[in-house]
Write a protein that binds this DNA or RNA. Structure first.
Lengths: 335, 335
DNA sequence: TTTAATTACGTAAACGTTTTCGCCTAGCTT
DNA sequence: AAGCTAGGCGAAAACGTTTACGTAATTAAA
């Protein structure tokens, strides 16, 4: 590393004070255009960039936000991050990434480690393992926070979500219209509002169409591919459903495999649809009907909200932004 | 935010100097165990965490690394990040993410913005748009840098890559063994060593098996789905290949669509294989033979290397770590 | 002409750590 | 008894900024 080029060095070479340099660099009204230009050109010439640590320390701004999510290697979240990062670039912010792996203790630990001024704000999609709103009730008082997709409700924080209930209702109706009378539910995110809303939409659609509101065949998600496969196979054997509503992408592979292993044809024997951001849904065998959330847009919206808050701009109106998902009909529901 | 709890506050409450507190917190040998314990318990009690900006400013260490990649929303890169983040957690490092979108100017801009002490080191998989090694030749002198997958060669930096040549050779042989005699190549990453190695492995396999070393039918990747589809269709029409070797995942969808639109059956009319980290490869119609890179492991290895460097540990031996990819044979190559 | 306001810049403190150096005390060694 | 050593701690400088405040020169208002 060459000898450090800092504000002091610029000041010396230009024979002005470091205060003037600092103000010039920040385009302060106190400084004449002439001086600013001298500073700017020398700064460019020497390749000066301000030391972020010093700047943060003094100004209490970091131009950095954290994204806390369950896992990066997931179509929904990687698209969300893409959106977040894109907006962050526009606003000149840096983006830190933390994965909780659905572990609430990790989630809390990460979050706490950010409260000492490491970041200006947090974007989070919370872990599904537990719903402990006490922690977040306190947290939102300490740091600007925006929830996306997986949210805590009744908090003084911005939330960006999708129309889970409505789209699940609509998707269930689609299955019914395609002739399903016994639709099993593959249940994910059961502790979270999103998961509950999806399930509620499914149940209400059944009820609306006069389908047994009694015991619904349900498989709850486990963090174990093999186990999910087993459970789906058991469900198929026991209840012989003619439709599968998968509420999370993680059920797709075990569901398809289960049907294949049990020699059930999709869609003639069983129709399937799933929440999913899989880009290859249309290439699956058979192509998969999906409920596709606007993951990229969710990331963008959440980031925009956070940056508005950080720049003290009034949020237009709502604390809750609800984006629309799309039901994309393909062969797996066969109509 | 409650009144700040900092080192000064701890010092006051314990009636000792801030120097002692700082040393105690850092477990310095200068401080007696008794004092350390007093400091530690109070720190825990008051929920003290050191201010990172102050610490960075003084110590010139940030416990932060940057990951610079083309795009997060890609199976390979999101898995890599997952691996990086996991190792970072173990070492107590924070992870910043930057997307270049294959734009070399953005890549340079991001990288330059990190040289002022924002991070301790960089992990990067470079843009494919250009191969300008001058910049990186200088860069590696300025900051600890580890390349993964998409690397610049002949630099004094650690590189984590895969056996692109060998696996491409092997995959091409597989196509030949399955009966292909005219194998077209869908060419990605042509400016990078990885892309060239894959192509070379393909060519050499053809040569080894006595297949025309002349003009090979090739489609070069464009950042435009529609265009790639067009080009593949033209290629299929013009050259009537019986095999497609796709060197990057991005060609899968257009390749499958092209065959479908032209009524070519996979694998009877055309056999296909592709480099890919797609988890649903086995569910495609037909299931796709893939060359799967150990993306997660690559991320882990790259991160481990960087942290070893940052902790001044001698790297075991090699500057080049080469991991093995897997050829996973499925229906799309039909044998 | 005097006073007030404005413009343009400088001084110095502050942000919260880490780290060098030096001091003091106890316990040893001669 | 004098001199050493080592252990335990504190004073103060430093890291590179930002910013409150002060000041001098110029301009506008009275």
């Amino acid at each position: 590393m060459a000898e450090a080029v800092n504000i002091k060095r610029l000041a010396q070479e230009l024979n002005i004070s470091i205060a003037t340099v600092s103000k010039a660099l920040n385009d302060s009204y106190e400084i004449s255009l002439k001086t600013k230009n001298r500073v700017w050109t020398l700064a460019k010439e020497l390749n000066y960039t301000p030391n972020p640590a010093a700047s943060n320390l003094r100004s209490h701004k970091t131009k950095t936000v954290a994204v806390i999510i369950p896992c990066v290697a997931n179509n929904f979240f990687s698209l969300s991050i893409k959106g977040i990062e894109e907006i962050a670039r526009q606003y000149g912010y840096h983006v830190l990434i933390y994965q909780t792996h659905e572990n609430i203790e990790a989630e809390v630990a990460f979050t706490n480690s950010l409260l000492n001024g490491r970041v200006d704000g947090i974007l989070t999609s919370v872990s599904s393992s537990e719903y402990n709103s006490e922690y977040y009730t306190n947290l939102v008082k300490k740091i600007p926070l925006v929830f996306f997709d997986r949210v805590y409700e009744n908090l003084d924080a911005v939330k960006v979500t999708t129309d889970d209930y409505e789209i699940a209702f609509q998707a269930t109706e689609h299955l019914i219209e395609c002739g399903c009378t016994k639709i099993a539910y593959l249940y994910g995110l059961e502790n979270l509002p999103a998961g509950k809303a999806r399930f509620a939409g499914y149940l209400d659609a059944l009820k609306t169409h006069g389908i047994a509101a009694g015991e619904q065949p349900v498989v709850k998600y486990q963090d174990d591919e093999e186990l999910n496969l087993q459970h789906i196979k058991e469900l198929l054997k026991k209840y012989k459903p003619d439709g599968l509503f998968s509420s999370i992408e993680e059920f797709i592979i075990p569901a398809y495999c289960a049907c294949r292993e049990m020699d059930l044809k999709i869609p003639s024997d069983v129709k399937i649809l799933s929440f999913s951001n899989l880009s290859t849904a249309k290439l699956l065998n058979p192509s998969l009907t999906t409920i596709t959330q606007p993951a990229f847009e969710i990331g963008r919206e959440a980031a925009k909200c956070l940056f508005k808050i950080l720049n003290n701009k009034q949020l237009d109106d709502e604390q809750n932004i609800i984006l629309k998902s799309m039901l994309i009909k393909r062969e797996s529901t066969g109509c």
